[in-house]
C-alpha cells in the first residue's frame, strides 16, 4: 500500500477528527513513531487548503475546521507570492484530496494557472474564499464555486440605518467602469431595502482632477451617506491624500468604507467600516463543503454567494465631530467603537 508522510507534505496541518481524545492520541502516536499514514485509510474525506499566512485567514480556517469537525480532515498548505506554481500540482498529487479550498487571491491565481496548464485533466471540486473580485476569477476556473469577499452595500447600509438618527435613503458611490456588474447588483439589493444608490461611473483610468470633479459633483447630489467601494485604483494613497480626505472634510454625513484603517480618527475619512467576519466566512464555506460532501463530492450549482456575516467599526469620535447623531442604545450591536 502506498504511504505518505504528513510532515513532508505540509507546512501546516489542521486535524479535524471526531473527538479531542482520538485526535490527541493519533497525533501523539504519529509523532512518537514517525508514523506514515496510509493514503487510502486516512485520506477519505481530506480537504487540501491553500492559504497565505495571516490572522484573518487563520480565523477563516478555524471556522472551517470547527464546523467540519468529525466529517473531514483539513490539511493546510501555506502559500506566498514566491511559492512556485508547481507546489499546487505536487500537493494535489501527494495528498489526493476530495476537495480544494483556496483562501485569498494569490493561491486562487496560482490554481488558475494550474488549471490552464492541466486543461486535459478533470478537476476535483474547489471552493474559493477571501478572494477579491471572485466572479471575474471564477470565469477562468472549472468546478469551482465560492463566497465573495466584498460586503454588499445593503448589509452595511441597513446596519448604518439602525445606528444613525438621520434617514438613510440616498447613498452616493463612485466606481470605475470595471466594477459595473457589482454596482448593478448592489443597486438591486439596496432597492429591496428602500435605499437608492446614486452611482457615478468613471473610466478605468482616472486622474486626481477627474476623481475630484466627480466626487464634488456627487457630494452635491443630496445624498444621505457615501459608500466607498474597495477598489485599489480609487483608494490609491495619492487619491486619498489629494481627493478623498480634503473633499470629505466638510461632508458631515456618514462615510462607509470597507477597510478598517480608513476609519482611523487622524485620517478623517470613514466613520463606519464593515468587513467580513472571517470566522463566520469559514463556517459559511464549511456549509458549502458539507453540501458538496453530501452530494457525493460533486458541485451541482455554479452559484457564488455574498458573505453573510460582518464585523463593524464605528468611529464615534468622528461622528460627533461631524454632528452625526447616533442611536446610543444601538451601539452595543457593533463590534468596535472608536471613542
Amino acid at each position: 500500500m502506498k504511504t505518505k508522510r504528513f510532515s513532508s507534505i505540509t507546512q501546516g496541518i489542521t486535524q479535524v477528527l471526531h473527538s479531542r481524545t482520538l485526535s490527541f492520541i493519533l497525533l501523539s502516536l504519529s509523532l512518537l513513531l514517525g508514523m506514515s499514514i496510509s493514503h487510502s485509510e486516512q485520506m477519505d474525506n481530506t480537504i487540501l487548503l491553500f492559504s497565505p499566512r495571516g490572522n484573518n485567514f487563520q480565523d477563516t480556517i478555524k471556522g472551517l475546521s470547527d464546523d467540519l469537525a468529525g466529517d473531514a480532515i483539513i490539511i493546510t498548505k501555506w502559500m506566498n507570492n514566491t511559492t512556485e506554481n508547481d507546489s499546487i500540482a505536487q500537493s494535489i498529487k501527494k495528498i489526493n484530496p476530495r476537495l480544494l479550498v483556496f483562501l485569498g487571491n494569490t493561491p486562487l491565481q496560482a490554481y488558475t494557472r494550474y488549471q490552464k496548464q492541466h486543461s486535459d485533466k478533470k478537476f476535483i471540486p474547489a471552493i474559493a474564499l477571501s478572494a477579491l473580485h471572485l466572479d471575474r476569477q471564477l470565469k477562468y476556473l472549472n468546478n469551482t464555486i465560492g463566497i465573495r469577499y466584498e460586503i454588499p452595500a445593503v448589509t452595511s447600509l441597513v446596519q448604518l440605518r439602525t445606528i444613525v438618527k438621520a434617514p438613510i435613503k440616498r447613498v452616493g458611490v463612485i466606481y470605475r467602469q470595471w466594477m459595473n456588474d457589482f454596482i448593478v447588483q448592489n443597486k438591486a439589493y439596496c432597492k429591496q431595502e428602500d435605499i437608492e444608490l446614486v452611482a457615478i461611473r468613471m473610466p478605468n483610468s482616472i486622474s486626481i482632477n477627474r476623481l475630484s470633479y466627480q466626487l464634488k459633483h456627487l457630494l452635491h447630489k443630496d445624498i444621505d451617506a457615501l459608500w466607498v467601494v474597495n477598489d485599489n485604483g480609487l483608494l490609491h494613497a495619492r487619491f486619498i491624500q489629494n481627493v478623498w480626505v480634503p473633499l470629505l472634510k466638510n461632508f458631515n454625513k456618514p462615510v462607509v468604507v470597507g477597510i478598517q484603517k480608513l476609519t482611523k480618527t487622524n485620517l478623517n475619512f470613514g466613520i463606519f467600516s464593515v468587513e467580513a467576519d472571517h470566522y463566520a466566512l469559514g463556517v459559511q464555506g464549511a456549509e458549502m463543503i458539507a453540501e458538496i460532501m453530501a452530494n457525493g463530492w460533486k458541485i451541482d450549482t455554479h452559484k457564488v454567494e455574498p458573505p453573510v456575516s460582518i464585523n463593524n467599526i464605528l468611529n464615534v469620535k468622528l461622528s460627533n465631530k461631524k454632528n452625526i447623531r447616533l442611536n446610543q442604545q444601538k451601539l452595543e450591536q457593533l463590534d468596535t467603537l472608536i471613542q
Binding site: 454588499p152 445593503v154 448589509t155 441597513v158 439589493y189 429591496q192 431595502e193 463566520a280 454567494e305 455574498p306 453573510v308 456575516s309
Partner: peptide, 8 residues
C-alpha cells in the same frame, strides 16, 4: 445574519 439570508 438572518436578514442577509433573505436579501441575497
Amino acid at each position: 445574519d438572518f436578514l442577509p439570508l433573505l436579501t441575497f
